[in-house]
């Protein structure tokens, strides 16, 4: 025998639809407005601020080209081979390494080269007259 339960005795359920509506709106907001780029900064200060002219005597020029090679003391080296620069660092004066770029070099190549210079211990890197 089937008996219909009276409506008054039934437990009231909260409808999930408005909750899902709100959650979806929140989800859409966070999906569209969120960014996942982890920003970092590379400080570039004016040369006069960071360098002490009394301490530094030598200035080395490094010319980076688009083929991932750099020119140092009239010789070309691949950017992975930084031994000639490292040899200069062992001397008493650290010197300034002025980075110049040839035609076709991208900002990414330049930043990668500066990163490598910093990795081997170059402290004074100059870019367009500005010190890194």
């Amino acid at each position: 025998m089937l008996l219909e339960q009276p409506m008054a005795a039934k437990r009231r359920y909260i409808s999930l639809t408005p909750l899902i509506d709100v959650v979806f709106i929140l989800l859409l907001f966070f999906m569209l407005s969120s960014g996942f780029t982890q920003w970092r900064q590379m400080d570039i200060t004016a040369a006069s601020e960071s360098y002490n002219a009394d301490k530094i005597q030598t200035q080395h020029t490094l010319i980076l080209n688009a083929a991932d090679e750099y020119e140092f003391e009239h010789r070309h080296y691949p950017v992975t081979k930084l031994m000639p620069i490292k040899q200069k660092l062992t001397k008493s004066s650290p010197g300034i390494f002025v980075v110049a770029v040839a035609e076709g070099v991208t900002t990414q190549q330049l930043i990668d080269f500066i990163d490598q210079l910093k990795t081997i211990g170059v402290v004074n890197v100059s870019l367009a007259g500005l010190a890194l």
């Binding site: 035609e103 070099v105 991208t106 900002t107 990414q108 330049l110 870019l127 367009a128």
Partner: peptide
């Protein structure tokens, strides 16, 4: 990242 470095240098100047 793919901006020519020469242009970046000019801007920094």
């Amino acid at each position: 990242a793919i901006l020519p470095a020469n242009e970046l240098m000019d801007l920094l100047q």
